[in-house]
Structure formats: structure tokens, C-alpha cells
Design a protein around this nucleic acid. Structure first.
Lengths: 185, 185
DNA sequence: AAACTTACGGAGCACTGCTCCGGTTGTCAA
DNA sequence: TTGACAACCGGAGCAGTGCTCCGTAAGTTT
């Protein structure tokens, strides 16, 4: 993202992102940063210059996902059922949060942190989700007292629970659909 | 819990538990074990002899909580509304899981692990919860296709989400009540 | 009090995140 | 092409971590 980067710097930057993706996929978000630097064929100092913190590294990887989810929400406006559109979107939010083991923490942190680098992406995604929610509420398909914040917390919490239930790969989706319909009869 | 423990051993055991409670409350479940040993006035080797793993230490602290929740479920049978009884119990499960930052992970691990030391407590709690659920289902107050496992995952996931939303102290309860009633109208 | 068993404590290992700075290498002007 | 300078690299090094191992100390029993 920085312009006018020297050629070797740009190359290392990309190598680091590739290595980080692999390491996070393999060991979760707590993967060793030294190991990521090694995989990228780069010194540990270089890693820290490009990404001063592990969260910075994760945020770079999350940005695309957030932007995608924002666009997806916009696209789901075409869906005739506002209720289904919302549920579909929440399911995808949950799925995205579970890409790497441990990612839900970082997603919640990004959602929380106003000063974050990817706050713009975050806000755009949140706004798109809000429109989806409001449409459903306006049509009376979803209760009026729910906030976007609660929805995102629920989706992320459910993603976390799914990640903790290895024996039940569909747990997150199941819990989300339960919450949508309601446990009570 | 081991019988015929030498006097100094028993004393150190208790000191360690006290120190662990304080440290976990202060720094979450990732608190330094060296620090816990220091607080207890004990060498690091002593800590590891009494509790060979951090999880063992946590489990000792969780056991009482699980037993309490099991008894609580039994007590809630007196509650006239099966639905309210279940919601109350789930709320308390969630609250218990959020005692220390990071505890939800360990709770899920304990629920999952059949060979765990506190599997007995776990199973008893789960069974008591099942009875509460089945009563509500028999009365038609709760949908019939929900399992105890899903309920516990939901409660723990919601506890996790609450822990990640420091600005909203009631988040966990709110999400639980939303899930009970259902987001949809 | 002696003998025996149990328990203690911390040095030490391999690892972690992170900093700091001497050395290298791209880049751009002459 | 060459030189000079900024930009960038790499890894030694620090303080911290989880965990092991074993010589030493201290309760218990006779």
C-alpha cells in the first residue's frame, strides 16, 4: 500500500504476506513471526519493519475480506427476501472470521478499535450490513430492537464457537440459524 | 484432592490455587505460571509438580463451578416456567465461562475432552442441563431439534463475544436472550 | 535420633516477541 | 558508467515464556 517502495522492499512485502497466510492457516494467528520471516526468506527485522505488530499483519490480510463482505452486503440487496439476505450475509461474516484459528479475536479487535488502519474497511462493511438489517426491519422480518453491533458480535461469537467444536463442522451455521429463528417456540 | 499429602505439599497446593485465581483474574488465563509460583511463594518446579499443565490448574478452578452449575440446573426444576428456567441456567453458564479472560476456550476444551480429569463434573452438568432442556421441549416451549451440545456451545460462544465487547457489559446476556426469542419476527 | 520417603527450588534449554544498528543494495543524478 | 546517498536488510541480543531435571531439604515414621 505505500507508494514508491523500493523494488526489493515491495518484493519482501509480498513474500511476507504469502508466508503469513500459510503460517496462519497452519498454526492459527499465534504462529511464530520468526517462522513467517524464515518462510519468506527474510530477516526478522525486515518483518517488523513492514509490519510493526502481528495485528498489522493480520489487518492487511483482513482488509480484503472486509471489503469483500461490504460488497457482498450490497449485492445481497438483489435478494428478494430481506430476511434470507441478512442470514446469508451473517453466515458469510462468520465463515470469514473462522478462516484462521484465532482470527475471531482479531476481527472483534478491529471492529472495536476506532483508530485502526482498516477502520475504513470496517466502517464500510458495518454500514453495508446496517442497510441489510434496516431493510429487513422495515419489512418487519427482523425485530426492530437489534443493532448491527449485536449482529456482528453474534456472528463472530458463533464463528468462535464453531472453531472450538472440531467434531461439528457445521456448528457455526447451525447456531446462527437457531438464533435467527429463536430457540423458543 | 490427593489423600495423605505431606503437610507442606498441601499448604503449597492451596497457596498455588489462591495465587492462580488472583493471576487469572488479573491477566486472564494466559497469566505467567512463573508469576503464579512467585505469588504463591513457591518454586516453579513445585507448581509443575502439583499441576503438570496450565489446563490442569484451570480445571481445578473450574470443577467447583461446573458442580455448582449442575446443582443449579437441578434447583431450577422448581421454576414454574421451563423456558425461563432454561434461559436463566444458560445465562449463568455464560457468566461462569466469562470469569476470567480466555476461560471460554478452556471450558470448551473441557466439554470436548472425554479423558479430562473433570469429565465427571462436566458430564453431570451436561446431564442436568439436558433435563432442563428436555422439560422445556416436552412442554413445547423450546424447539425439539436443539441439542444440549448446541446450547452449551451457544452459551460459551456468547460469553466469548461478551468478553470481546468491553464497552457493552451486558452483551452476553443480550445475545442469549436474542437467540432465545429469535432475531426474526 | 536415624532412616526413609516425599517434596522443594531453581538452573538451564529451547522458544517467543521485539529492538537496534552496522552493513548492503537499489536508485537516480552526473 | 560511475558515484553517492538514501532506503532497506539481517541477525545478534534482551527479556520474557513454558517446561524439565535433579541435587538438596524437610516432613514422617520407627
Amino acid at each position: 500500500m505505500p507508494e514508491a517502495l523500493r523494488a526489493d522492499a515491495r518484493h519482501n512485502h509480498d513474500q511476507l504476506l504469502t508466508a503469513a497466510r500459510a503460517a496462519f492457516a497452519e498454526h492459527g494467528t499465534e504462529a511464530s513471526l520468526r517462522d513467517i520471516a524464515r518462510r519468506a526468506g527474510v530477516g526478522i527485522g525486515t518483518l517488523y519493519r513492514h509490519f510493526p505488530t502481528r495485528e498489522a499483519l493480520l489487518q492487511t490480510l483482513m482488509r480484503d475480506r472486509f471489503d469483500g463482505l461490504g460488497r457482498r452486503a450490497a449485492g445481497l440487496f438483489a435478494e428478494p427476501s430481506p430476511r434470507d439476505a441478512l442470514l446469508t450475509w451473517l453466515t458469510e461474516v462468520a465463515a470469514g472470521s473462522a478462516t484462521y484459528r484465532g482470527l475471531p479475536e482479531s476481527v472483534m479487535a478491529a471492529l472495536r478499535d476506532e483508530g485502526s488502519e482498516l477502520h475504513a474497511s470496517c466502517a464500510a462493511m458495518r454500514a453495508a450490513g446496517s442497510r441489510l438489517l434496516e431493510r429487513a426491519q422495515a419489512q418487519g422480518a427482523v425485530r426492530a430492537d437489534v443493532t448491527t453491533e449485536e449482529l456482528l458480535a453474534l456472528a463472530t461469537g458463533v464463528a468462535w464457537a464453531g472453531e472450538q467444536s472440531p467434531g461439528h463442522p457445521q456448528m457455526a451455521q447451525r447456531l446462527l440459524s437457531l438464533a435467527m429463528t429463536g430457540l423458543a417456540r
